[in-house]
Amino acid sequence: MKCPICGLQNAEGVKFCERCLSALDIFMVNPEEEGIYCNQGHWNPIGAKFCSICGEPIKIEPILLSPYVLVEKDSGKIISLPLNEEEITKVIVGRKSTEFKPDVDLSELTLSATVSRRHAMLIIDPESKSISIQDLGSTNGTYLNGERLEPNKIYKVNPGDVISFSKKLHLTFEVKKQ
């Protein structure tokens, strides 16, 4: 078997690549075993974020709680905004800490260090269904299409607008059809 790691063509019966000693048996899986497949069709254990064979990210479409999402510009990561007209009309966007968990947690993103714990609030108007944003006095500021928002003031957000949590972390606001 050809080693998927270093490319060495190994002899029959070899369980660890003779050159790089990578365990080859992890690539020889029982197809009935539960798992997920990458875009190239390689099998991976459940929970894998990257394909262990081709290295491509494994994209799992998140289960959307609402049609409102933020999409990270660099990675394409989708963050669902659990807003709806009946119950949840306001969500706090921020970075989780041991004491505090925001409604929308950005701490998984690469540049999350620039996000305040309570960074901004997104609000839905139950009647017009329009969305607006309010900066909650964050350290690095909130930007709408590049313009810095005045703290605690409410601004309307339209689909396609870029919301930046600090000058570096850019997310696009989108409304997905369900």
Binding site: F16, L21, S22, F50, C54, G55
Partner: peptide
Amino acid sequence: SLYVQQELAEKLIDEGKPLEALTVLQT
């Protein structure tokens, strides 16, 4: 295997093969 793979990943980077290097790093 971790030691050998680290060397291999670095070599692949230096050869301009970041995708291959990512496969190694992911393992």
